[in-house]
């Protein structure tokens, strides 16, 4: 027990001082921030996709709304991009309600396919909007004007901002997990019919989860914009953005608090490093390796990497 506690403290310490460890290498410093950003969006997805079992493949809608809310705050209102984050979150909650009401009644794969369609719909429409910069996209402040533009050379400030957001999100998720809502969501995931017969208003709780998830996905989009300073329909609303959230959460372990973080810890460095070492040849090897590793993990650990720990726990209890 104490051994485990020491391990946990050690892990927390590593997470807190990581930017100092990576201080010599801006690339690894940035990698840390990118892992956290990936973990934020995948953890946000996890609320509805993992806990409530509603596999949305259209979450890029909210990611894009967040990014565009930020960039338009700058372009049209001359505010720092981060000022758009609350607007984006609010808008995402409303859009989630509008999407959720018709689609959440669909079961299983039908829901997934409907969210893909909605995502593509929003992507196509966004590319025809002049307000959103059309297909060309919009750029944030080219040169940081004040600190509030959150445009830094070093990745360290991003790292701590993202870490704070992730901790808040995971804290909230943990709280939900243990609340009545968490219990309802698990019931809905196991068997919606059974949950309903027990008097759980499944539609209402699914919608709550969807809206909450949308708000945080949108925040991830706003943070992305602050870091990269540019958004276009493909990098905001593209289907790959949605799929990556699903894959990250599923790889680590969907419906578990730290699942998406573990997924991000594996996938983001894998993506960046394989691109760094193999991408320059132009032979497509980056994705051959990336795809193969995902296939192997899915083949041997279909419930995600965290199921490895679960198994050990079960074995230990059996002892």
């Amino acid at each position: 027990m104490t051994g485990r506690r020491i391990l946990h403290l050690l892990l927390i310490a590593v997470v807190l001082v990581y930017p100092l460890i990576a201080a010599d290498s801006p690339v690894y410093g940035r990698l840390g921030a990118l892992v956290l950003l990936g973990a934020i969006s995948a953890s946000a997805w996890n609320i509805v996709g993992g806990y409530a079992g509603q596999v949305s493949i259209g979450h890029a809608v909210f990611f894009g709304i967040g990014a565009y809310a930020s960039v338009t705050s700058f372009v049209h209102l001359d505010l720092p991009p981060i000022a758009g984050a609350p607007i984006g979150m609010l808008l995402s909650v409303l859009v989630a309600a509008a999407i959720g009401v018709p689609t959440l009644r669909l079961s299983g794969h039908y829901f997934s396919m409907a969210t893909i369609a909605v995502g593509e719909l929003v992507r196509v429409l966004s590319s025809t909007s002049d307000f959103l910069g059309g297909a060309q996209g919009l750029g944030g402040p080219a040169m940081p004007r004040t600190m509030f533009d959150l445009s830094f050379v070093s990745a360290t400030p991003y790292y701590y901002i993202f870490l704070a957001v992730l901790v808040a999100l995971l804290g909230l998720t943990h709280w939900i997990e243990r609340s009545r809502m968490g219990f309802y969501l698990r019931a809905i995931k196991d068997s919606e019919r059974a949950a309903r017969s027990l008097g759980v208003s499944s539609g209402r709780y699914k919608l709550y989860a969807f809206m909450l998830s949308a708000a945080f996905t949108s925040l991830a989009g706003s943070l992305y914009l602050c870091m990269f300073g540019f958004i276009d329909p493909e990098s905001g609303f593209g289907i790959l953005i949605s799929v990556k959230m699903v894959v990250m959460a599923a790889l680590g372990g969907a419906g578990q608090l730290f699942g998406p973080l573990v997924g991000a810890l594996i996938l983001v460095p894998l993506e960046e490093l394989s691109n760094s070492y193999l991408g320059g040849q132009g032979a497509g090897l980056t994705f051959v390796v990336y795809g193969a590793i995902i296939v192997i993990i899915a083949r041997f650990l279909p419930s995600g990497l965290l199921s490895l720990l679960e198994r050990r726990k079960v074995v230990r209890r059996a002892d």
């Binding site: 996709g49 596999v55 493949i57 299983g108 794969h109 997934s112 799929v243 699903v246 894959v247 959460a249 599923a250 790889l251 969907a254 032979a283 497509g284 090897l285 980056t286 994705f287 051959v288 990336y290 795809g291 193969a292 590793i293 995902i294 296939v295 993990i297 899915a298 083949r299 041997f300 279909p302 419930s303």
Partner: peptide, 28 residues
């Protein structure tokens, strides 16, 4: 056959990985 034992998400994970693998093997 193996991912069918896991949750529905495993299908997305596994076949998405397969998609990237096949697509870029063809690219190669």
């Amino acid at each position: 056959r193996h991912i069918m034992r896991g949750p529905m998400l495993a299908q997305i994970l596994g076949t998405f990985g397969l998609a990237l693998f096949l697509r870029y093997s063809a690219f190669n």
